[in-house]
Design a protein around this nucleic acid. Structure first.
Lengths: 148, 148
DNA sequence: AACTAAATTATAAGAATTATAATGTAGTAA
DNA sequence: TTACTACATTATAATTCTTATAATTTAGTT
C-alpha cells in the first residue's frame, strides 16, 4: 500500500543525512497518496492549508532531494511545467536474443505515449506493452571467448 | 534521404497558406540535416551566422507552425528546454482489443528507454517493441449503441 | 508594379524554476 | 535538558524559457 511505500521512503531518507521536517513529510505523503502526477505548484497549493507559510522553493527543493534519492521521478509531458510521481514498482522486461533470459527493468510507465496515442488515433487506450531485446552480459562474454 | 524529406516538407507547407521565407527554409533545412534534437536556442545560434538579424521569436514561431503541420515534433526530456525533431517514419502500432484492427501510430523511437536499459542491465541492446492496446472509435460507438 | 495577408523583428511580458541570504529547526551529543 | 551545528525553510530576487505585442518588411498574387 501507499502507506508502506511512504514508510520505506521515509526510512531511506533517514538512512542518509536528510532530515525529516513536517513540510517534507507532508510533500512526501501527498505524492504517495495521490493518483495524479502533480506539478510543483499543485503540491504547493494542496499543502498551503496545512502550511500557510510554506514557500514554493521548499516544494522545489524537496522534489530535487527526492529525485536524488530516487523515490520520486520527474516527468515532462508537452505542457509547460514538470510533473512528479512517486516511483512505483512498474517495470518492463529486457530479453536476451541468445539465451532467452528475461530480466526486469524498472522504468516509469510510458503514460505520455498512451496519452498521445489516444489523441492521435481516437482509440480509448487501455494498456501497452514494451519489451527490449539485446544480448545479456553472459552471452556477450561467451561470444567473445568463442571468437578468440 | 534528408533532402527528399525536406522537399516533402516544403511541399506540404506550400499546399497550405504558409509562405516560404529564407529564415523558415533555413530552420527546416537545419532540422532535417541534424542528427541531434536541437533546442530552439541551438537552432537560433546555428543560424545567426546566416541571419544576423533573426529573432528568437522567429524560431519559436516557425517551430509552432511546423508542429501544427506535423513535420516537426516537440520532445520534452527532463531538462529545461524543449527539443525539436523532424518527424521520421518510425512508428508503432495501436491495436483494438475488440476487432483486432491495427493502426499505425507515429512516434519518435524510444531511444531513451533503450539507453537506460543498457546502462541498468548491462545488456547490449539491439531493439525494442512497443504496442498500445485499446478500443478503436468504431468499436466504441458499437458498444454505446448496444447499451441503449 | 502594386496590393495584402502573412512573416519577421525588437522588445516587453509571462510563467516556471533556481539562487541568495536571513531565519528557523531537526538531530545529536554534552 | 540544553546547546550546538548543519541542514531546511522562508521571502525575495534573479534566471531561463517561451509567448505576446506592435511596427516594419516581405512573399505570393493580381
Amino acid at each position: 500500500m501507499a502507506s508502506e511505500r511512504l514508510q520505506d521512503a521515509v526510512d531511506s531518507l533517514k538512512s542518509t543525512k536528510v532530515r525529516m521536517t513536517p513540510q517534507r513529510h507532508a510533500i512526501l505523503e501527498f505524492l504517495f497518496e495521490t493518483m495524479t502526477h502533480p506539478t510543483a505548484d499543485e503540491i504547493y497549493k494542496a499543502l498551503e492549508g496545512k502550511f500557510p507559510n510554506m514557500s514554493v522553493a521548499t516544494v522545489y527543493n524537496n522534489l530535487r532531494v527526492f529525485k536524488e534519492v530516487g523515490i520520486v521521478k520527474e516527468l515532462s509531458y508537452g505542457d509547460s511545467s514538470s510533473r512528479f510521481d512517486s516511483v512505483t514498482n512498474s517495470h518492463y522486461h529486457i530479453i536476451c536474443n541468445d539465451c532467452g533470459k528475461i530480466v526486469d527493468f524498472h522504468y516509469p510507465a510510458l503514460d505520455e505515449v498512451e496519452t498521445l496515442a489516444e489523441h492521435v488515433t481516437n482509440f480509448q487506450v487501455q494498456s501497452h506493452r514494451m519489451e527490449i531485446y539485446g544480448t545479456c552480459p553472459e552471452c556477450m562474454s561467451k561470444q567473445s571467448i568463442a571468437h578468440d
